[in-house]
């Protein structure tokens, strides 16, 4: 067996394969429509000085952004589920109506910390004008 020769051939072949895989991937991006719209990505890339007429690159950035967001969202979802599971069982019955999975700042900041983004949750930040009021006063 000519091991050395085989290895180099294999590596060159794999390089060719990777090359082809990258080209295929970029080409497949033309058919794939990411959730993050091209126009948004183009707008912000243009703001940072990035100029390229190739749509595939914009799509690549869009897909990367979508993956980034999706990863953080799934992490935050795990945090959210873990938080809800940790509530004591008798209390859980009371909070049955709040069982919905809500993206909160707590979970988000925990998830973002792993990605190198430090988000400090504002303790008394009211999300909406009616956030601080209970249902009785809201009805008035």
């Amino acid at each position: 067996m000519n091991n050395h020769h085989g290895q180099s051939q294999q590596s060159s072949e794999s390089k060719h394969d990777d090359d082809a895989a990258l080209t295929d991937f970029l080409a497949s991006l033309m058919e794939y429509t990411p959730t993050v719209p091209d126009e948004l990505v183009e707008h912000y890339l243009g703001k940072s000085g990035f100029q390229c007429p190739d749509v595939r690159l914009t799509r690549l950035v869009a897909v990367a952004t979508q993956k980034f967001v999706a990863d953080i969202a799934s992490d935050a979802l795990q945090h959210c589920k873990a938080r809800q599971a940790s509530v004591v069982k008798d209390k859980r019955d009371k909070q049955q109506k709040d069982k919905r999975l809500i993206l909160t700042m707590d979970d988000l900041s925990k998830a973002l910390r792993e990605y190198g983004v430090n988000v400090k949750h504002q303790e008394y930040f009211a999300d909406s004008p009616s956030a601080g009021l209970d249902t009785a006063s809201r009805d008035e």
Partner: peptide, 26 residues
């Protein structure tokens, strides 16, 4: 991903981070 609702502030922060990501990549 499976979320059913969101806090307004969390969504704003998250979208800011996403925009920042795009700009940083650029």
């Amino acid at each position: 991903e499976g979320f059913q609702a969101f806090q307004q502030s969390a969504l704003e922060t998250f979208s800011d981070v996403a925009v920042r990501y795009i700009r940083d990549v650029g």
